[in-house]
């Protein structure tokens, strides 16, 4: 399991815009770099990040080779109702990790 840092409010007023910041530990090996023995290292990157709010996709990003290691993704959404936010990173070599956080809307 890759280490993840998630920063989002635990509660928000209904209709408020909340900022969500995510950071995940990942090498993001580009697939273009030679290794110590001169052969090209196989690509190993996160290709897709998805945030679902109670099952509905509210933010999605496609990541590519030019993105640095340990990608930081920041975005906003509108707090509509109390529920669960789930964050999923998917990538090469069957990489898949999901984290969930609950949000209370008042």
């Amino acid at each position: 399991m890759a280490r993840v840092l998630l920063n989002l409010p635990r509660s928000a007023a209904k209709g408020a815009v909340i900022e969500i910041r995510t950071l995940i530990m990942h090498p993001m090996e580009s697939g273009f770099r030679p290794g110590m023995n001169g052969t090209i290292l196989a690509r190993d990157i996160i290709t897709r990040f998805t945030c679902e709010y109670d099952g509905e996709v509210v933010f999605q990003a496609e990541l590519s080779s030019a993105i640095a290691a340990n990608p930081f993704i920041s975005f906003t959404t509108v707090a509509t109702a109390s529920g669960t936010l789930s964050f999923t990173w998917e990538g090469d070599n069957d990489f898949r990790q999901t984290e969930t956080r609950s949000l209370t809307v008042t």
Binding site: L5, M25, N70, F72
Partner: peptide, 13 residues
Amino acid sequence: DDSANPGMLWVQE
């Protein structure tokens, strides 16, 4: 910012 500093991933580990 502890939520943006990638070093905090290692601290967590």
